[in-house]
Design a protein around this nucleic acid. Structure first.
Length: 356
DNA sequence: CAAACGTGGGG
DNA sequence: TCCCCAAGTTT
C-alpha cells in the first residue's frame, strides 16, 4: 500500500515531463556514460567545459585509453597529460586535472571526494562541475547550471538580461535547484542538457517537439529568439608575434617550453620573439641563428576567443648545434615523428606538419 | 566584476 | 568573411 498522495513530495511537472522525454530522446550512450565511474565522469565534465560534445569524444577516448585511472593520471608526467590534451584548448584544464588527481591521492585516499565542498575546492572543479560529477557518478541531488541549462531556464522562466550577470545567475541557480527532482537525478541532469543541446538550441529552437513548451514563458511571449540575451560584446584586439622555426641538418626542429602563465602555458612551442636579436641570445646555447639562412614564411592570423594573433613564421634551416649542449629541460630538438607525443598548441602543430 | 584562457563549428 | 559561442573556472 502506497502512502496517501498528500504525504508525497509534490512532483515537479517540469522534471517529470523532461524525464519522460529523456526516456525516448535522451542521449544514453556517450562514451562517459558507458562503464560509468567517478573518474570518467570527472574527466568528461572537465573536457566538456566550454567545449562541444562532438569535439570532446575522440579526446576522451584517447585520454581514458592512455590513463584509465585517477592514480595513473596522478603519477604520470605532466608532458604526457598535455600531449593528450593537445588540440583541445584551455590547457589549464589539463594541468588542474592532474593537480586535482594528485591532491586526491594525497588527501582523499586516492578517490574524488563525495562532499560537494571538498570536490569544488579541487583545481578545475567549480560549482557546476562538482554538482555534475556528484549527480552523474553518484546520483546525488545537486543542481547544475551550464550553458545548456542556462538557455533552457532563461527561456522557460523568461529571465531577462544577460544570463552571465550576477542577478540573473542567482535567479537561474535558484530555478535550477527548484526543478531538480529527488529521484533520477543523473537522468534529469542529462535530460535538461540534452534538451538544451538539441530542441532548445541557441538558434531555431524546435518548440513544437519540446516536452515543457506549455509552461515556457519565452514560447508564450514570443521571446525564444531574444532569450537568452547576448553577452555584451567587446572589441578583440590584434597582436602580432614571430615564431622561429629552427631546423638542424637532419631536419629536426628546436622547440621551447612556454612559460607557466599566459596562453599555451607549459606547452611545447616554437620560440616566440619580438626581435631576432633577443631570440638569438635566448637560444645561443642551442643554436646559432644566421640572418643569411632566414626565410620568411607566410604570415597568418590565429583567432583566439578574446583576441587575434598575427603569426609570422621565420624559418632558419641547416642550423648546426653547438658542441656543448646543456641539459636544458625547456628546450629540445624534435623530429617530425616525435611531435605526436608532445603537448603542442593546435596552430603550431599545424604549422610544423605543413612544413616542407 | 571583468579579463584571461583555445579551438572548431554553425549561421 | 565575420560573429557568436559551447557541459566554466580562475585570477
Amino acid at each position: 500500500m502506497s502512502a496517501p498522495s498528500a504525504d508525497l513530495p509534490t512532483p515537479d511537472t517540469f522534471a517529470h515531463a523532461l524525464l519522460a522525454w529523456f526516456d525516448v530522446h535522451g542521449r544514453k550512450d556517450l562514451p562517459w556514460q558507458r562503464n560509468r565511474n567517478a573518474y570518467r565522469v570527472w574527466l568528461s565534465e572537465v573536457m566538456l567545459q566550454q567545449t562541444q560534445v562532438r569535439t570532446v569524444i575522440p579526446y576522451f577516448e584517447r585520454f581514458v585509453a592512455a590513463l584509465p585511472t585517477l592514480a595513473g593520471l596522478a603519477s604520470t608526467e605532466q608532458d604526457r597529460v598535455l600531449a593528450l590534451w593537445s588540440g583541445l584548448g584551455y590547457y589549464s584544464r589539463a594541468r588542474n586535472l592532474q593537480r586535482a588527481a594528485q591532491i586526491c591521492v594525497e588527501q582523499h585516499d586516492g578517490d574524488l571526494p563525495r562532499d560537494i565542498e571538498a570536490l569544488s575546492a579541487l583545481p578545475g572543479i567549480g560549482r557546476s562541475t562538482a554538482a555534475a560529477i556528484l549527480a552523474q557518478a553518484f546520483g546525488e541531488r545537486h543542481a547544475i547550471l551550464d550553458g545548456n541549462v542556462r538557455r533552457v531556464l532563461a527561456r522557460w522562466h523568461g529571465v531577462r538580461g544577460w544570463p552571465g550577470g550576477s542577478a540573473a545567475q542567482r535567479l537561474l541557480w535558484q530555478f535550477a535547484d527548484t526543478h531538480t527532482p529527488h529521484e533520477r537525478v543523473a537522468d534529469y541532469t542529462q535530460a535538461i542538457m540534452d534538451l538544451g543541446a538539441t530542441l532548445c538550441a541557441r538558434s531555431r529552437p524546435q518548440c513544437a517537439r519540446c516536452p515543457v513548451a506549455s509552461g515556457c514563458v519565452a514560447r508564450r511571449e514570443g521571446l525564444t529568439a531574444v532569450l537568452p540575451e547576448a553577452k555584451p560584446k567587446r572589441v578583440a584586439p590584434t597582436r602580432a608575434t614571430t615564431l622561429l622555426i629552427v631546423r638542424d641538418a637532419q631536419g629536426r626542429v628546436l622547440l621551447e617550453r612556454r612559460p607557466p602563465t599566459g596562453v599555451w602555458a607549459r606547452l611545447w612551442s616554437l620560440p616566440e620573439t619580438d626581435d631576432a636579436a633577443s631570440a638569438a641570445r635566448r637560444l645561443r646555447d642551442h643554436c646559432t641563428l644566421r640572418a643569411d639562412s632566414c626565410t620568411a614564411l607566410g604570415s597568418f592570423v590565429h583567432t583566439f576567443s578574446h583576441y587575434h594573433l598575427e603569426i609570422t613564421p621565420l624559418l632558419f634551416d641547416g642550423i648546426v648545434k653547438p658542441a656543448r649542449v646543456g641539459d636544458d629541460p625547456d628546450h629540445g630538438w624534435y623530429a617530425r615523428a616525435e611531435l605526436a607525443a608532445l603537448g603542442l598548441p593546435a596552430p603550431v602543430r599545424r604549422l610544423l606538419e605543413s612544413l616542407p
